[in-house]
Write a protein that binds this DNA or RNA. Structure first.
Length: 877
DNA sequence: TTAACCACGC
DNA sequence: GACGTACGTGGTTAAG
């Protein structure tokens, strides 16, 4: 029984792997952290899984080693370490210090040699040794005590090699790895080996002759004239290569086992480092009590107000309306705070909600308010019968416009990176999950007081940044007014026909039960169809259907896979149907019934205005932007969305091809612009140009292909994505894309220019100056770079379309107010607006809505809007 | 509670 | 030549 367990980590190898596996993260201060993060998670995983008694991380030292004396060109072709990585290495050493894990390097030797030396020493003592690396060379160390964990791809995916696995994979003993390298060389280390000998040949030779020397002793026995010549001509080189590949197991390593003994973590240092590096998830793990957050903060002077007076309510003021419930349609407000030039105040809900002075101030738009997520407060107060107006600045929206990619638009995070008063995370004040509860007394006063004070201070700083970004119009004239409109839409809600939903649900459940029975019958076994795991086992093990695709955890059973299996077994079709109906029932019927508001009987969604990277809105609880429409079965759900008033209709107005029109405007491609000016069917037109045929010869299939290509242009998918959606090869997909670019050279030029621009500036913008930063555009990682490039091409298109529809919403609200119309805007679904329109306003709206939408922003191609209306959302088609 | 898988919309 | 491939929200299952 081994008591001692030594873990040896090839530090450089792990760092490299982490660097290339993870996107290029950086902190607010601009320190790159992706490799450090990957390195840290890897170390944590090792600690958890191995629980070593001793551990050491070995690094390479300096540029040259003793191997360079043998061969000057050793590692000669290797690209030099990217600076973004080398600057991260010192942090890794610091982290190891904080973990109290020994790290070590020796002049003139590589990490391999340190690991070799220590592992063999420990093995001799019969210790259990585990080596972590991504370098196959180290497999030569494997023996009965030494096992090597080899990173496959990513950083946590490993194979652990013992002697048996080395034999299975290569058919040789571990020590023969060096003979293999001697023969085949290693391009990454620039070890030449014997030219023309690869892994296959090397392994064949070693099977027969054991070692490089053995091969040369019996060269006559080697079959193949060419091969023999090559071996003969490169004998010296082969022997030298073997020498280079041999890990030194008696390097001058001045480390005793005692030095590698594991100690307790240096908690303080660890937390400080994680903070500096902004490793939030790791902080949560190690900094169990975030009490520290509050300890750092000095007490704020907050006045508890028992009666509000107008001298506290000056303009401008920062206002906080705290509601714990995430869904503010059922908010219970737990307190208020106000900060302004006269001081910082806490006001209890009882006092504020009863106060006429407060209500008057709140609705007075001449009294400017600075807020964070104002819409939340406006709606929550609305439910309490209090009108809030005069919101001049929303810190959340400003932060989002300045950099939408920041995952941290929390007030706590914003306050941390700006110069304002610090704010604690709600979680650390209130707790989370079941334990979440209102803080009491001073803790609550302090927390809310800090929020208000921070908002008051942040306004100026963020306003300046908006100015610097030329985003003041976007903020003040578009997003701020939009926020008010969205709040009104949410509070107003959408009426639903509960009975209709319940009837549909009953029908679906009956059908589902039938199909379930049929599936079990056809499969010959009872199982949970909703479980991908069980379904996979039934389809691919019991029924032996061919495996099309695998996921990380097992067989893929996604719709596109099942569609390919339809001809193999009749159960497949039933499963697809079961899935389709099951989705309708659980997500839409049950889901919608669950969120019908108790007081109004209507559905009140929440639009998130500061989330998407492109500037679109998103919708939650429920998501009303993905109500089924494509398939008739699902589309029926829309029968349940009805007007609230008896003499009203559901009225829908949607932009036709808004993204492609925006593209035409941005890139000015002559053909595309002309097509829209002549109001052609754009997919047919694309098919004509891509397939080089006349309008009459465009087949349904050609149009379908052209449509998919246009879709790809709009959403920035790759040739792979296009091949998937059309069920063709990637090559064919690429050829379609090439032909598209030949037909629309202006589009091609735009795509090239925008990528250059993104590389130059680090970001792309939309027509109204919305921004998206793309740091990965300079990544050496192909995937990350390609993704950034597609994003650079796509975001100005999608984001400008979002600009247009948002502007249209603001304009329409204004016109409807002017005309004192009774109709109301209900929803916004990316390129369409849904209204409830009273009957005697239908004719007005039929003219007004398209006119406003089409002229929201002037493009050099016309915008086109289709309107329709009916008794339910279903009928508005 | 969290991660993985799947599916709906634009 | 491989890489792993739009943006969202939400339901279910299964493992921690």
């Amino acid at each position: 029984m081994n008591v001692n367990k030594l873990v040896l980590v090839d530090g450089n190898s792990v760092a490299y792997r982490a660097f290339f596996a993870l996107p290029l993260l950086n902190t607010e201060k601009g320190i790159y952290t992706n490799a450090i993060y990957g390195f840290t998670t890897m170390i944590l995983k090792v600690l958890e899984e191995e629980k070593p008694t001793h551990m050491l991380v070995a690094f390479d030292a300096g540029k040259t080693t003793f191997r360079h004396e043998t061969y000057q060109e050793y590692k000669g072709k290797r690209e030099k370490t990217p600076p973004e990585l080398s600057e991260q290495l010192p942090y890794m050493r610091e982290l190891l210090d904080a973990f109290r894990i020994k790290h070590y390097e020796v002049e003139n030797y590589e990490a391999d040699d340190i690991i070799g030396t220590l592992s063999k020493q420990a093995s001799k003592e019969n210790w259990e040794v585990k080596v972590y690396t991504g370098d196959k060379d180290l497999l030569q160390l494997v023996d009965e005590n030494i096992h090597v964990a080899m990173m496959k791809k990513g950083i946590t995916n490993m194979d652990t090699y013992d002697e048996k696995l080395v034999d299975e994979k290569y058919g040789i003993t571990p020590i023969q790895i060096i003979d293999m390298k001697g023969l085949m060389g290693d391009s990454s280390d620039n070890i030449p080996g014997v030219p023309g000998v690869g892994e296959k040949t090397a392994l064949k030779l070693l099977k027969a002759h054991k070692t490089v020397e053995g091969v040369y002793e019996s060269l006559d026995e080697v079959s193949g004239k060419k091969l023999k010549e090559k071996l003969e001509a490169n004998k010296e080189q082969a022997l030298m290569s073997k020498e280079l590949a041999t890990i030194m197991c008696n390097a001058p390593v001045d480390v005793s086992f005692e030095d590698t003994k594991m100690g307790e973590h240096d908690q303080e240092k660890l937390v400080a480092l994680f903070k500096e590096l902004e490793f939030k998830s790791l902080l949560d793990k190690f900094d169990g009590d975030r009490e520290a957050e509050s300890e750092e903060m000095e007490d704020l002077s907050v006045t508890e107000v028992s009666e509000l007076t107008s001298d506290m309510l000056v303009s401008p003021s920062a206002l906080v309306v705290e509601s714990l419930n995430e869904n503010y349609h059922q908010a219970d407000i737990v307190g208020f705070s106000i900060a302004n030039n006269t001081g910082t105040y806490f006001i209890s809900s009882e006092v504020a909600l009863q106060s006429d002075v407060f209500a008057e101030w709140a609705k007075d738009k001449e009294h400017a308010k600075f807020m964070y997520d104002a819409k939340r407060s406006v709606v929550a107060l609305g439910w309490e019968g209090i009108t809030l107006d005069g919101v001049e600045f929303d810190v959340q929206i400003a932060s989002y416009l300045i950099d939408p990619s920041s995952s941290a638009h929390d007030l706590a995070d914003i306050s941390e990176r700006k110069k304002s008063t610090r704010v604690q995370h709600d979680e650390s004040v209130y707790g989370k999950g079941k334990k979440r509860k209102v803080a009491e007394g001073d803790a609550l006063y302090q927390h809310l007081g800090r929020k208000a004070k921070a908002i008051f201070e942040l306004r100026d700083e963020l306003d300046e940044e908006l100015t610097a970004n030329e985003q003041k119009e976007l903020f003040y004239d578009l997003e701020m007014p939009l926020s008010v409109i969205l709040g009104r839409m949410e509070k107003h809600g959408v009426s639903v026909d509960r009975e209709e939903l319940e009837n549909m649900g009953a029908g679906l459940e009956k059908k589902l039960a039938e199909i379930e029975a049929e599936i079990h019958e056809l499969a010959g076994t009872e199982f949970n169809i909703n479980s991908p795991k069980q379904l996979g086992e039934v389809l691919f093990e019991k029924l032996n259907l061919p495996v099309v695709k695998k996921t990380k955890t097992g067989y893929s059973t996604s719709a596109d896979v099942l569609e390919k299996l339809q001809d193999h077994h009749e159960v497949v079709e039933k499963i697809l149907l079961y899935r389709q109906l099951g989705k309708l029932n659980s997500t839409y019927i049950e889901g919608l019934l669950k969120v019908i508001h108790k007081k109004t009987g209507k559905i009140h969604t929440i639009f998130n205005q500061s989330l998407t990277q492109t500037g679109r809105l998103s919708s939650t609880e429920p998501n009303l932007q993905n109500i089924p429409v494509r398939l008739e079965e699902g589309r029926k759900i829309r029968h349940a969305f009805v007007p609230e008033r008896e003499n009203a209709v559901i009225f829908a107005a949607d932009y036709s091809q808004i993204e492609l029109r925006v593209l035409a405007h941005i890139c000015q491609d002559e053909t595309l612009v002309k097509a829209f000016r002549e109001d052609m069917d754009i997919h047919t037109k694309t098919a004509m140009d891509v397939f080089n045929v006349g309008e009459a010869e465009v087949t349904g299939n050609m149009r379908r292909t052209a449509k998919a290509v246009n879709f790809g242009i709009v959403y920035g998918i790759s040739d792979y994505g296009l091949s998937q959606s059309l069920g063709i090869t990637r090559k064919e997909a690429k050829s379609f894309i090439d032909r598209y670019f030949d037909s629309f050279p202006g589009v091609k030029e735009y795509m090239e220019n925008i990528v250059d621009e993104a590389r130059d500036k680090g970001y792309v913008t939309t027509m109204l100056n919305r921004r998206r930063y793309l740091p990965e555009i300079t990544s050496r990682n192909f995937n990350q770079r390609s993704f950034a490039e597609r994003t650079a091409m796509n975001t100005p298109i999608q984001g400008s379309a979002a600009d247009v529809i948002k502007k249209a919403m603001v304009d329409i609200a204004e016109r409807m107010k002017e005309k004192q119309l009774q109709s109301s805007l209900l929803l916004s679904v990316h390129d369409e607006l849904i209204f409830e329109v009273v009957e005697d306003e239908i004719e007005t709206m039929k003219i007004l809505v398209p006119e406003v939408m089409e002229n929201a922003i002037e493009l050099n191609v016309p915008l086109k809007v289709d309107v329709s209306y009916g008794e339910t959302w279903y009928d508005a088609k």
